[in-house]
């Protein structure tokens, strides 16, 4: 006798079966079920509709749903694969899969490239890099003169733009990250290794056995 799965499917928009999501991600079925607990918590923090809205992700990441954060916005945009203004459960699990310690490094590098390609031109451009540095300084209440910001951006851009054509392409980004692996440190969440310990309530009621 199962507990909730079939009922959840009907009631929650965008809900996908854990067995399907586990087959496509580094997570086990139990871990996907534990992630559902986290998803539910996040998706009811502002609007209780079983979907994660931008304000809800903003609130979880920056503790302030009203203060816009460029980077939280970018994370939302990448998680919202269908581009319908909300993050559904399947999108949440598949996107978090990239942050799993066992996910391929190439996937993490590719994700950061898309994250920093603000205008989605297929390149990280100098203006985008400067915009992100300014946003970070603003977020951190740090004051640096425009000259210093320009110098930091110039130096970094020069190091990464190996072809010297004024933009960083995916190949250059891969090379740059290989030389500076700390750039993808935040792309690995150790929490995901023991997500069932963080959210054990669902695991107690699961009806599906993990195959591994």
């Amino acid at each position: 006798m199962g507990c909730y799965p079939s009922k959840r499917t009907k009631e929650t928009p965008g809900y996908e079966e854990p067995t399907v999501l586990a087959a496509e991600t580094p997570f086990t079925v139990s871990e996907v079920e534990a992630l559902y607990e986290l998803f539910k918590k996040l998706s009811r923090s502002v609007i209780d509709d079983g979907l994660i809205h931008k304000e809800e992700l903003q609130l979880a990441l920056s503790r302030n749903k009203n203060r816009r954060n460029l980077f939280a916005d970018r994370i939302f945009d990448l998680f919202d694969v269908k581009r319908n203004g909300v993050i559904e459960f399947g999108e949440f699990v598949r996107s978090l899969g990239v942050f799993h310690p066992n996910a391929p490094v190439e996937d993490k590098i590719h994700f950061t490239f898309r994250l920093y390609d603000l205008r989605q031109t297929g390149f990280i451009e100098r203006e985008e890099l400067k915009e992100m540095v300014v946003a970070l300084l603003h977020e951190s209440d740090l004051l640096l003169s425009d000259d210093v910001v320009e110098t930091i951006v110039d130096k970094t851009f020069c190091d990464a733009d190996l072809k010297g054509d004024g933009k960083i392409d995916p190949e250059e980004w891969m090379e740059f990250v290989s030389k500076n692996p700390s750039l993808i440190k935040n792309m690995t969440l150790p929490y995901l290794m023991d997500i069932t310990l963080a959210f054990p309530s669902f695991v107690l009621s699961t009806e599906v056995e993990d195959s591994e």
């Binding site: 990441l61 946003a135 210093v148 700390s182 969440l189």
Partner: peptide, 26 residues
């Protein structure tokens, strides 16, 4: 002069908005 030698992407990666571990904080 320390900030001038900083890697801009490294600076950006410290953003709270990119710190997804906060999703797991109770």
């Amino acid at each position: 002069m320390a900030p001038v030698t900083m890697n801009a992407f490294e600076l950006i990666s410290t953003s709270q908005g990119l710190n997804l571990s906060s999703l797991f904080e109770k």
